[in-house]
Design a protein around this nucleic acid. Structure first.
Length: 192
DNA sequence: CTAATGATGAACT
DNA sequence: GTTCATCATTAGG
């Protein structure tokens, strides 16, 4: 990760906002797939909804690595979700990537996603990992190193909406979900 | 050791 | 709106 990127990734809330509008890219043997990040959530160690809340465990250990580390976990026994770890190292902070607007490799995404339509390819945290070919083998790898990349140059300035997070039972009222206004590609449209 | 649960998605009615 | 697939982690005995 460049010095520039390190600055953007100082804490999970700022990173969650900065990541909106950036392009997330995977380079695999099957081809390149990519999409604009349109929805994120921030998690941190003093947040009872976070996997890092009870300290470092076997599952969450990647969350305590340096900024730019990838944290992937198995959700509900069958889905993978992608997080980008933010700093400082050891704090257990990360940003969950919840939705993308597909930009590159749409046909490959469709083949990985059982040939669903454009709106169903990346509109959820486990949908986008499947579409981009991300799984548990990517856990604890580094961004912009080999397979998973983020292009920090935005092609537009997104208007950011802040809301409560999706699918959690602890710390429900914290407004730590961020998404791009009027994007049809977000996972859930309602919620405050 | 056992049992409940979950940062979800697909397929239903 | 509801149900359920499916398993690592976690709490508890």
């Amino acid at each position: 990760m460049t010095v520039d990127m390190e600055k953007l990734f100082r804490n999970s809330v700022d990173a969650a906002k900065h990541l909106l509008g950036m392009e997330l890219i995977t380079i695999t043997p099957q081809g390149v797939t990519a999409g604009i990040i349109v929805e994120t959530e921030a998690y941190h160690q003093h947040d009872s909804a976070s996997h890092s809340f009870r300290g470092k465990t076997k599952r969450s250990s990647a969350m305590f690595e340096r900024p730019g580390t990838v944290y992937v976990y198995l959700s509900y026994g069958l889905h993978y979700c992608l997080n980008i770890v933010t700093g400082p190292k050891g704090q257990g902070e990360a940003v969950l990537i919840r939705a993308l607007q597909p930009t590159q490799g749409v046909d490959l995404m469709k083949s990985r996603r059982n040939h669903l339509g454009l709106m169903h390819l990346c509109s959820g945290p486990a949908k986008l990992t499947q579409a981009l070919g991300i799984d548990i083998t990517d856990n604890n790898t580094q961004i912009n190193n080999a397979k998973i990349h983020i292009n920090s140059e935005k092609t537009f300035k997104p208007k950011i909406i802040t809301s409560t997070r999706i699918g959690i039972s602890n710390n429900k009222d914290a407004k730590l979900r961020f998404y791009i206004e009027n994007s049809p590609f977000v996972s859930v449209k309602h919620k405050l």
